[in-house]
Design a protein around this nucleic acid. Sequence first.
DNA 1: GTCTATAGGAAGATAGAC
DNA 2: GTCTATCTTCCTATAGAC
Lengths: 193, 193
Amino acid sequence: MARKTLIGEEALVERLSATFRDVGYEGASLALLSEATGLKKASLYHRFPGGKEQMGMEVLQDAGRWLTAHVLEPLAGEGSPRARIAAMTRELDGFYRGGEQACLLNLLSSPIGGSGPFKAAIRQMFEAFVDALAGVVAEAGFPASVARDRAERGVALIQGSLVLARGLGSTEPFRKALDALPGDMLAGAGECA
Amino acid sequence: MARKTLIGEEALVERLSATFRDVGYEGASLALLSEATGLKKASLYHRFPGGKEQMGMEVLQDAGRWLTAHVLEPLAGEGSPRARIAAMTRELDGFYRGGEQACLLNLLSSPIGGSGPFKAAIRQMFEAFVDALAGVVAEAGFPASVARDRAERGVALIQGSLVLARGLGSTEPFRKALDALPGDMLAGAGECA
DNA sequence: GTCTATAGGAAGATAGAC
DNA sequence: GTCTATCTTCCTATAGAC
């Protein structure tokens, strides 16, 4: 009863995600998505009756599940704050392929005033990420407002270093940002400078 | 001899830039650009025979001139390092409209391996920005390698806070990042924590 | 310098055979 | 579940009048 589907659900979403992250949502034509997945356009519509927008949503939901499993839960889990943040950076390094792959949340975003189809999902993921990171920083002994500010800065650093890496054509800014992140988040917790 | 052009060159490029920054390069159709500028498509082609790609290039060059005049030169100019960085944040706050407008350099970027038409110009602007910021930090007494790392982090913070602001639908992360930037860049120069 | 009108092609999406 | 073939709409770009 096998061999009817040419590509598994996981691999399919994976390829779609990689394409969106490479060329953006608008830049990802069905021709391109078809080439990337090995499925003809009509086959893509069979799997995603809602068309490109549904592909975007499912890719985003998949990223949300990844975020929960590989970032949010570890951040809320066992170990010292520093160890948990360091573990998170390792996961992010893999997810972004050392900085080569851009972030969906950046490439699917809509203007601040606007209301694209992905806005709510993206916002939710950013908020969850900031909250989880702020939780760890607070656990290290910082007041809640400081923890929140630091967490926002941490997420901004990750996103911004990906943007910079893309702009400069080098993954170095991303790798450096990840390396420095635990120190950035916990500076002043025991030592100074 | 006036009144032939319905919109001046400066205003024209300004509107095109705003549109690209709102919906991205691929998302900016000629219909949209026409609506934003008040010029019909044929008129846009009269001003930009190279079509949308030329519009993107000229908008990018205009941003480069703005960067030189309002960021690079002030950073290399008079005043204390802290004052110069603070002056830069005020300029950036205006340019990004307090975080409401995204960054061209982000929205026109191509994948790390790829080679879009804007790649060289974008790379050059990011490098010039990082260099100028690193120069100020070095002037404040930090070793060149530390200054470079801090400057990269500063640019990443600006870019990332814009991404985060867009994702959260609030300009707050951007404004906070700007406020903290002088302290971030010069921490340890005299005081600690 | 701006416009209306239109060419020519690529986009998203669907029908129906296998 | 996948395909070829097709439809319609939108896109970039051009022609030519004013």
